Simulated assay, not measured.
Amino acid sequence: MKKLPVLLMAFLCVIFSASATTTNSSYEPENTFIGSWTIDVVGGGVSWLKVHEKQGVLDAELLWIGGSVLPVSDVYLVDENTLIVTRTSEVELKTTSGKERTHTRTWTMRITKRNDAIAGTMTGPTWEAVGENISFFTGTRMPAIGAAPDLSTLKYGKPIKLFNGKNLDGWRTIDPNSPNGFKVVNGTMQNDPVQPENGEHIYYGNLRTDQEFEDFNLKLEVNVPKRNNSGVYLKGIYEIQVVDSYGLELDSHYMGALYSRVTPSVHAEKPAGEWQSLDITLVDRHVTVILNGKKIIDNAPAEGPTGGAISSDVFAPGPIYLQGDHGNVAYRNIVLTPIIKK
């Protein structure tokens, strides 16, 4: 387990000691956890939690670092400053005889709140099912997302060409220690995360711009080979999915979707191996996506970070980043136009 920063440790001690009171079963505390929370996991990773009531029953959705936004198994108040959230999933594990069997695993979040800040732990079995893993986190309440902006009134700055077609100047891997699978081939930025025939899996890095941006319009072209997958992250927070999903049902995990959050309204994909255009506008935490000339997401709210986000601050400037750890993909003609705020 990684050593906690001094300030985080002090915060945890204060709020946990403040919450260590005897619970009266007849006591009905006021639920001040209702709303959305962004979460920073100690050691790296961004998460998100939304707590709400549905027909008088407390419920929640959770994004834990990667993957999708999922409903939780259970959520309940211990007292007005302590919330318990459990998440259960089924995994395939090999028995000692080598056979696979389905195993149910449960992770438990214990969250303590102080004003609009939270801290806590996520506890559960390790992936190897040997021992226990404990992650520490802090978080803050997210302000309401607000009404959709009027896109007709937007004012734009000077377009910025993010890729010069010659080299990767202006780009770098998010983790400098990760290998980079991107290279420039015939004026395109191609990712080829080659894996060894024998040996350990290589985890390739994601590529980000040196520059950081606030709200903007982003245009690019992308070519996805069959059964391959990538993603374009806006401000390093919101993933627009890039994947070969031609001919499949509409889904929030397919081409052009705001990953696991907003499903495209219509099909607009082209077959694998063809160049496709993406025209994306991010303004006031709302996203519009035009895929191959068809509007598939229309000024939809981005409720929170998507899996793989590198920042929990939805109001701060951030980079464009391209997933490099999934599969083969090529990009070209990447142009960002900033939106000028009054």
Score class of each variant (00 low, 15 high):
residue 295 K to N: 08
residue 111 I to E: 01
residue 288 T to S: 14
residue 266 V to H: 11
residue 211 Q to V: 01
residue 9 M to R: 15
residue 248 L to Q: 15
residue 299 N to L: 09
residue 15 I to Q: 11
residue 318 G to N: 00
residue 342 K to T: 10
residue 282 L to N: 00
residue 206 N to T: 04
residue 148 A to H: 07
residue 149 P to N: 06
residue 169 D to A: 12
residue 31 N to T: 14
residue 165 G to N: 12
residue 171 W to V: 02
residue 292 N to W: 08
residue 210 D to E: 11
residue 56 G to D: 08
residue 90 E to V: 14
residue 189 M to P: 03
residue 309 A to Q: 01
residue 117 A to I: 09
residue 122 M to F: 15
residue 248 L to N: 15
residue 280 I to H: 14
residue 54 K to M: 05
residue 118 I to A: 06
residue 286 H to M: 01
residue 121 T to M: 12
residue 16 F to D: 05
residue 221 E to H: 04
residue 34 I to N: 12
residue 291 L to G: 01
residue 162 L to A: 11
residue 45 G to T: 11
residue 229 N to L: 06
residue 79 D to R: 08
residue 238 Y to F: 09
residue 164 N to L: 10
residue 94 K to L: 11
residue 60 A to W: 00
residue 303 E to A: 10
residue 89 S to K: 10
residue 184 V to D: 05
residue 5 P to M: 13
residue 49 L to R: 08
residue 340 I to K: 06
residue 250 L to C: 07
residue 45 G to H: 09
residue 52 H to E: 13
residue 200 E to L: 09
residue 325 D to S: 14
residue 142 M to W: 02
residue 311 S to T: 09
residue 302 A to E: 02
residue 306 T to L: 05
residue 187 G to T: 10
residue 204 Y to Q: 08
residue 171 W to C: 02
residue 71 P to R: 13
residue 2 K to C: 03
residue 179 P to F: 06
residue 43 G to Q: 02
residue 91 V to G: 01
residue 172 R to A: 08
residue 69 V to C: 11
residue 111 I to V: 15
residue 341 K to F: 10
residue 288 T to F: 13
residue 308 G to H: 05
residue 306 T to Y: 04
residue 278 L to I: 02
residue 71 P to E: 09
residue 57 V to L: 09
residue 282 L to H: 05
residue 122 M to P: 00
residue 43 G to M: 05
residue 46 V to N: 08
residue 320 I to L: 13
residue 168 L to D: 04
residue 334 I to L: 08
residue 141 R to W: 05
residue 337 T to E: 09
residue 292 N to D: 09
residue 287 V to D: 03
residue 286 H to W: 07
residue 38 T to C: 05
residue 334 I to Y: 03
residue 186 N to Q: 12
residue 160 I to V: 14
residue 175 D to C: 02
residue 264 P to N: 03
residue 48 W to G: 00
residue 126 T to R: 14
residue 182 F to N: 06
residue 133 N to W: 07
